[in-house]
Amino acid sequence: MELTFSLQRHHINKLPPPDIEDVKSKWPFLFIPRYIYAHFELLTDINVPRSLELSMEECGRAITEYFRGRPTYKDVKDILSNGEDNEMALRIVQLLMAHFGEDITGFILFTDGSATAADDVQATLRLPASPRLILPVSGATGQVTIKGWMITLEGRVISEGITPTFLTELAAMFAIYYILNVQYQDEAACTLVFIQRRFIGINPERGTKAKRGKVVSKKKGVIVQKKSSAVNTHVAMLLKKLLDFEWNFI
Rank of each mutant, 00 (worst) to 15 (best):
M1G: 00
M1S: 03
E2M: 02
E2P: 00
S6T: 12
H10M: 11
H11G: 03
I12D: 05
N13S: 10
K14R: 12
P17S: 10
P18S: 09
D19F: 04
V23E: 04
V23I: 15
K24P: 01
K24S: 09
K26H: 15
P28F: 00
L30Q: 06
F31N: 07
R34T: 09
I36N: 07
I36L: 12
H39E: 03
L42F: 07
L43Y: 01
T44Y: 04
P49C: 00
L52N: 02
L54S: 11
E57L: 05
E58M: 09
C59S: 12
C59D: 05
I63Q: 00
Y66E: 00
F67H: 01
P71S: 13
Y73I: 04
V76S: 01
K77N: 13
K77C: 13
L80D: 00
S81M: 07
N82I: 03
N86T: 03
E87D: 12
M88F: 02
A89Q: 10
V93M: 06
Q94R: 12
L96W: 02
M97A: 01
A98F: 00
F100H: 02
D103T: 09
D103K: 11
D103P: 03
T105A: 08
I108K: 05
L109N: 05
L109Y: 06
L109K: 11
F110Y: 09
F110I: 03
F110Q: 08
T111Y: 05
D112E: 14
D112W: 08
G113K: 07
S114T: 13
S114D: 13
T116Y: 02
D119K: 10
D120K: 11
Q122V: 12
L125H: 05
L127P: 04
P128F: 11
P128S: 10
A129S: 12
L133S: 04
L135W: 03
A140M: 05
A140T: 08
Q143K: 14
Q143S: 13
G148Q: 06
M150C: 02
I151G: 05
L153C: 01
E154L: 08
R156H: 09
R156Q: 14
S159Q: 08
S159R: 02
E160D: 15
T165M: 13
T165H: 14
T168E: 14
T168R: 13
L170N: 03
A171C: 07
M173S: 11
F174W: 09
F174G: 05
F174T: 08
A175S: 15
N181L: 15
N181T: 13
V182I: 14
Y184S: 08
Q185A: 15
D186W: 05
E187G: 02
A189H: 07
C190V: 00
R197A: 13
F199W: 07
I200P: 02
I200T: 01
G201D: 09
G201H: 13
I202W: 02
N203F: 11
R206C: 13
T208V: 13
T208E: 09
K219R: 14
G221I: 10
G221Y: 12
I223M: 13
Q225C: 08
S228L: 15
S228I: 15
S228W: 15
V231Q: 06
H234Q: 03
V235G: 06
L238V: 06
L239M: 14
L239I: 14
F245T: 01
E246R: 06
N248W: 09
F249K: 00
